[in-house]
Amino acid sequence: MASKKIPILVPDHVYVPKHEIMTKKEAEEVLQKFNCQPTELPLIFVNDPAIMGLGVKPGDMIKITRKSSTAGDSLYYRYVVEV
Rank of each mutant, 00 (worst) to 15 (best):
P11K: 05
T70S: 11
H19C: 11
V16S: 04
V30G: 01
Y15L: 11
K4I: 14
M52D: 11
K4D: 12
M22F: 11
P42V: 03
I44M: 08
Y76M: 10
T39G: 03
A27Y: 12
R66M: 11
M1H: 13
I51K: 07
G72Y: 08
F34A: 04
K18R: 15
Y79T: 00
Y76H: 10
L43Y: 02
K63L: 09
A27H: 10
V56Y: 03
Y76P: 00
N35M: 01
T65R: 13
P38N: 07
P7E: 11
K5I: 15
V80Y: 07
K18I: 15
E20L: 13
H19F: 14
Y15W: 01
V56G: 00
G72F: 09
L9I: 09
L43P: 00
E28R: 13
R66C: 09
Y15C: 04
I21S: 08
L9V: 09
T65D: 07
T23E: 10
V30R: 10
K33T: 10
L75C: 08
D12S: 02
E28W: 09
Y79L: 00
K4W: 11
K67Y: 15
K63R: 15
E82R: 06
E82H: 06
H13Y: 05
S3A: 14
K5C: 07
R78H: 02
T70N: 06
E28L: 12
E29C: 06
E40C: 02
K5S: 10
N47V: 06
I8S: 11
E29R: 14
R78D: 05
R78G: 00
M52R: 14
E82Q: 07
T23D: 13
L41C: 08
E28H: 09
T23R: 13
D60Q: 05
P42L: 02
Y77I: 03
M1P: 08
K33N: 09
L75K: 14
M1Q: 10
D12F: 02
